[in-house]
Design a protein around this nucleic acid. Structure first.
Lengths: 264, 264
DNA sequence: GTACATTACTTTAGGGTGTAAGGAGTCGGC
DNA sequence: GCCGACTCCTTACACCCTAAAGTAATGTAC
């Protein structure tokens, strides 16, 4: 299920997101803090990377740090805020140097590539809904990078905004397919090919009139099966879909540039 | 959180997806079934539509039907399979008549529109991950509709596949923003404008050097604030992003058509 | 008409989850 | 030396999904 974000105390959340990463040692009474927000977030990210978002619980994070679940509540208001922090810190990992010196198109391509890699390294990112903005430094960083690269097209910023959002969606959608292909293979133990084979046999048995009911899909399916490969199929497919969708989108951008500068 | 799907008994799941909607009355001993798979799925969809995926539990579905949670397990193997059924049945609602008689572009536009509407009527669809295919009739129906409309461009089917996936991703991404804007306003009670106002005030306070650190984002933000409207902002924004992204994509498709048929 | 197999449904129970509440324990400042 | 502040833990509750076992209802076969 998609994890929601950002409905707790706004000020507290924002302070956690933007506050200094290393807190100055407290000068008051009481025992020294044994943990820190950053340590908690890092542990949570480790867990999510290794075992997926389903394994992320306050208990599991606490255990990894040698504490109980409740110990975390001293540092973090709740799980949603923790997820926000994980999301934002991870987005902050995106490299920022995409010089448009070689033209906006190649910069956009390598930026999209970096985004793809980022999501594949942290597949749980895809289970955090991007719709409600977190408004943290990482998110701003990504937006700034995307916007500034696409702004070098010369298009008005208000249109660049749409381009950015479409590009982001295309990347997210296709990398999601790739990530879940991997995850599924690992979790079910079934290789993807075996899974697919079993399913299509079942389909043929239970729905004999499949090709008649969905002719175009069937046509596509047969053309696909004719060209097998050693690579995991769905993952390669996702990568191709990513590249093709991106090209399509950038062609659209190019057309928009021509249209905007053409009738001068 | 994203709901996963399809890891139970494959045969049972497929039979539920493709089997007849009205089961023939059983002939044999035992009490008469008081429920049916379809009734359960319909109740679950009602709950998800009204109160969101978070309120969907086996208990809540059972209660709505006047039964306990466990009663459902006679009809449905588990919650994941129920979600699969909900997903697939809902996708089946997509209208299918998009005649490309007025040209592929207008057909694609109205198809995308119908997809948008469908997702806005059933926002929980966006919380079901589309990566792992359910392989039910509804999903096939959507794929068939998308493919056949885009196939009328004349592009080779293998490329149409990419177009379909990119289009689907753009729709999903933008409608997700719109849906969660509504949902957030309803759940938090805070109007979106108020929410945004509070957040941006906080941002200015906690991050005084925001415009220096993220100049492009800041430039966009100021240009946006200059043109307010009575409509909910994020939702309108999402709709505009949808339309613009779609146009961009279709421009890309047009360019591909020209390129393919040009050098003849 | 009665025994039996079969099915629908409930109850109980076990192992998860997030987190509210209150009770230790620990340290600095007076 | 003690107080107050603070961190951390234990306990507890309210949910969640679902396995297992028990109960009631139904139809068939004798």
């Amino acid at each position: 299920m998609v994890v929601f974000a950002g409905q707790g105390d706004a000020r507290r959340s924002m302070e956690l997101l933007w506050g200094p990463r290393v807190v100055a040692p407290r000068t008051g009474p009481g025992p020294k803090p044994g943990l820190s927000v950053e340590a908690i977030v890092a542990a949570a990210i480790d867990i999510a990377d290794a075992d997926g978002m389903a394994s992320l619980s306050m208990r599991s994070v606490g255990e990894r740090l040698g504490r109980t679940a409740m110990a975390l509540y001293t540092y973090v208001p709740g799980k949603t805020e923790l997820v926000d922090l994980m999301y934002d810190r991870t987005l902050g990992e995106l490299p920022s140097s995409f010089s448009p010196s070689d033209g906006w198109r190649s910069a956009a391509l390598s930026l999209a590539d970096a985004l793809w890699d980022l999501h594949l390294r942290h597949p749980w990112l895809l289970q955090v809904s991007p719709a409600r903005p977190v408004l943290g430094p990482g998110e701003f960083h990504v937006q700034e990078t995307l916007l500034s690269v696409l702004a070098s097209t010369g298009l008005p910023l208000s249109r660049v905004r749409w381009v950015v959002s479409a590009l982001f969606n295309v990347v997210r959608g296709s990398v999601q397919a790739a990530a879940e292909s991997r995850q599924a293979a690992r979790e079910t133990g079934l290789s993807e090919e075996d899974w697919w084979y079993a399913r299509s046999a079942l389909l043929r048995e239970l729905v004999p009139d499949l090709t008649a009911r969905f002719p175009t899909v069937a046509r596509l399916g047969s053309s696909v099966e004719a060209s097998p490969s050693d690579e995991p199929y769905l993952e390669r497919e996702a990568r191709l879909s990513f590249e093709a969708g991106l090209e399509l989108l950038l062609d659209g951008v190019e057309a928009a540039i021509v249209k905007a500068s053409g009738p001068r």
